[in-house]
Design a protein around this nucleic acid. Structure first.
Lengths: 221, 221
DNA sequence: CGTTTAATTGAAAACCGTCAAAGTGCGTGG
DNA sequence: CCACGCACTTTGACGGTTTTCAATTAAACG
């Protein structure tokens, strides 16, 4: 359902509804207002790998501007509210709109690079810890978090599919982290002990407020 | 060393020389003419994860156009010849140059998504097989390959660092693949049995000749 | 409340890493 | 030309991590 509100198309998705399916032509990009979504692929044996998580404030997905279609399906993890950003209107004026999207694409790119490092070289425990800390960090930006506590609407199967683990093993790691103190996820509530903001790893995603840094002149000025 | 040849800056790198270091401002993007390079990160315990491989014909790295700097180091795997593409000259005219770079960035993005799936959900054997097949496929584009044979200048440690494995285990998988027939890497020579061109997996990287598919009008027309 | 979905636990096996050593190839210098 | 050094590959034995299969408990939802 689409509603026009002062030049802003608002749209809702219900839990487990697809925002896009593989190959769908996309003439809009979504900006998430409320709720979580993810991009995933399913391999032949039926297992799933989640390859991106979309939180409030995120664009979904910037690269649709370039590709004109969704390569992979996006599904809502919770009920969602999004605004639609039409791509047609953006071509003519290569200004702030395009710049924002390309900057967001760069962020997403760097986040993927970090996940390759995580999946390739970190233990299950470190992956889980870093993932939860990253979620907490990203949620801060949109104010969905108090100092040491936030809500994670993912099931353990969802997290396992992000982290390249089985749900059973993820569960064991979560228990382990609880006993180790510091990080505990009970139900949907994530609690961080103190001193959990320390640098745990992202090499590229960098500072919370990363933006485009042109070599000389701003691109597309 | 930089040589001017009809408006084309040619540059050489020797084996193991860095094309860029973490944080380096970049006012150019390279186009690889000869040789291989890779992007990597090193985690605190000293282990390395390679997050991109650059082959002849590839841009290294398109996202420098947006970021204006290298987030991660790039190192030459073999001696290399590259041409420099200055970014300043490209800003003014948002034409083919920018479009090529953004298209290449999209390809790199999709390739990273595929590697997340591979690292997260495939066995070591499938990862190695798919990686070697992908290299063969990519080398075809630049004609560095005969039908069922090509040269892979990577050491087994390099490949292990791409695939998130130890060099010892990678070696065992390679032996296993040789005995299983079909795929064998001996020295630097990769030989494919017949019928190894079948679809093994990439969900997003798509057809060899992927290009930007605008939703309506070409972006930056 | 009953039904469904998600979380938790246990035991066994498969997969992959670690450590240590030996073998191979290749270029450099004597 | 040969000997040496060096980097890379290969092998074995062992241990740890993660998966698999199966069952049970707890929580969420009508």
């Amino acid at each position: 359902m689409t509603i026009e509100t002062s030049n802003l198309h608002i749209r809702q998705f219900s839990k487990h509804e697809h925002l896009a399916r593989a190959g769908d032509p996309q003439r809009v990009v979504y900006k998430v207002q409320e709720g979580w979504a993810c991009r995933y692929s399913v391999i032949p044996d039926g297992r799933r790998q989640i390859t991106a998580i979309f939180l409030p404030g995120d664009f979904c997905e910037p690269q649709w501007l370039l590709a004109g279609k969704a390569q992979l399906p996006i599904i809502a993890i919770t009920p969602m509210t999004v605004t639609e950003i039409p791509l047609e209107n953006i071509y003519g004026q290569p200004g702030k709109g395009v710049q924002d999207l390309l900057g967001a694409m760069l962020e997403a790119f760097n986040r993927q690079t970090d996940w390759i490092v995580s999946l390739g070289r970190k233990s299950a425990k470190a992956r889980v810890r870093d993932f939860l800390l990253e979620l907490h960090r990203r949620l801060k930006v949109s104010g969905h978090v108090s100092a040491h506590r936030c809500t994670i609407p993912l099931t353990q199967q969802d997290m396992a599919d992000v982290l390249g683990l089985t749900a059973v093993h993820l569960n064991r790691v979560l228990m382990d982290l609880r006993k180790s103190g510091a990080i505990s996820l009970r139900g949907k509530t994530l609690s961080l002990g103190h001193n959990e903001h320390v640098q745990t790893g992202p090499a590229t995603s960098g500072a919370p407020h990363m933006s485009i840094q042109p070599a000389r002149e701003p691109m597309l000025a």
